[in-house]
Design a protein around this nucleic acid. Structure first.
Lengths: 194, 194
DNA sequence: TTGTCAACTGACCGAATGTTCGGTAAACAT
DNA sequence: ATGTTTACCGAACATTCGGTCAGTTGACAA
């Protein structure tokens, strides 16, 4: 066995998973430790045995989302080849990561910057955005994207579409991750490519 | 003069405007009445002279967003004519309303359902979504939309794109509302129409 | 000069917040 | 049987929360 089926109870991982679920239902600031305790079936104080506190739960969740995105753009396929093809690959992979780490990315996309933890996450997110933005600009310079729309606007709309997945996607219900990626690429790129 | 230039101080309208601004910066639950007071340059208690409370501020803001959307779909151009053309009109009008009432719609799109006020807003929003969803389904039935993508998915992606405007649009900076509407229609509909 | 009234302050309330801590029961190791 | 560890509870903590209320201020009318 890979995991020993010890006795009952929670661990840092299960607490995080449950917490992120509640954060997404009620919003991070709208969730009290009492809410988390109820969802976990324990008392408030039991949570502190497994994790250092509320903000650390958020930090771990946000890192999980951001790490996935940065691992992607570190891949060779994000940096070599024609820009328009790299862009399509990044869009497809982004959809896959969004769906795979749905609750974590959902949380990330709703961060406001109310704490050092949130500010740090926002900065990393902006770095990812800059990468994508440069990619679109390159594809436009290559003449592979319709020239009548500002590349900055294209970036916004394209990844606005991708990110909007977090607002409605439910695993197991309806379209698969590949279905969604395929639909976005078809609609957007058929409308974008020259 | 349309507005009498009385004396200094705030009124329910200016309090609402400022409050919605802070709500969008910090999130509704992340905003305290103390935060609002600071932004208004008055004491907490002064707010209660103009407005009944925090939740009422939210309720008024959400109504402002929702009223705009429902006035639109009550228009004749949303109900008569070919479905695909009605859809394009609704998309263009949605962008216009989103930009015109940006802070209010932004707040609406971030509602979780943590209070009766929020639940009521969510229900009205779902009603709007059903209208749009039916419109896309109709256009698909007319054979005016590519048949290889599920109409439900098309709806999600199309209005995911439109709604994502609230995440980045800044009035006066960059594209105008018409620019954005035009870009969305070109990209999406060139990729959608058969 | 006096009175009115819109607009606000400052002190305060009970409830809820995130977090800490002393204790404890059961499982496990020896 | 004994000690140790794991996972938890209950009570309390300081602070912040949304909200109330009696009073004050300053502009205006009479």
């Amino acid at each position: 066995m890979t995991t020993s089926p010890r006795r009952r109870g929670h661990d840092p991982e299960s607490v995080l998973r449950t917490a992120v679920g509640v954060f997404n239902e009620r919003g991070y600031d709208g969730t009290s430790m009492e809410d988390l305790a109820r969802a976990l079936g324990v008392t408030k104080s039991a949570i502190y045995y497994h994790v250092p506190g509320k903000e650390q739960l958020l930090a771990r969740a946000l890192d999980r989302a951001l790490d996935g995105l940065f691992e992607m753009i570190a891949d060779e396929r994000a940096s070599s080849g024609r820009a328009i093809d790299r862009l399509e690959w990044v869009v497809r992979r982004s959809v896959a990561i969004l769906v795979d780490r749905l609750p974590y990315v959902t949380l990330l996309l709703r961060v406001h910057g109310n704490s050092p933890t949130e500010l740090r996450a926002l900065e990393r997110r902006r770095e990812f955005d800059r990468f994508v933005s440069a990619l679109v600009k390159e594809a436009a310079a290559d003449g592979d994207i319709r020239p009548d729309i500002d590349p900055a606007l294209v970036t916004r709309l394209l990844f606005g579409t991708v990110n909007s997945i977090t607002e409605w996607y439910q695993p197991g219900r309806g379209a698969t991750a590949d279905d969604v990626a395929e639909a976005i690429v078809r609609i957007s790129f058929d409308g974008l490519r020259v």
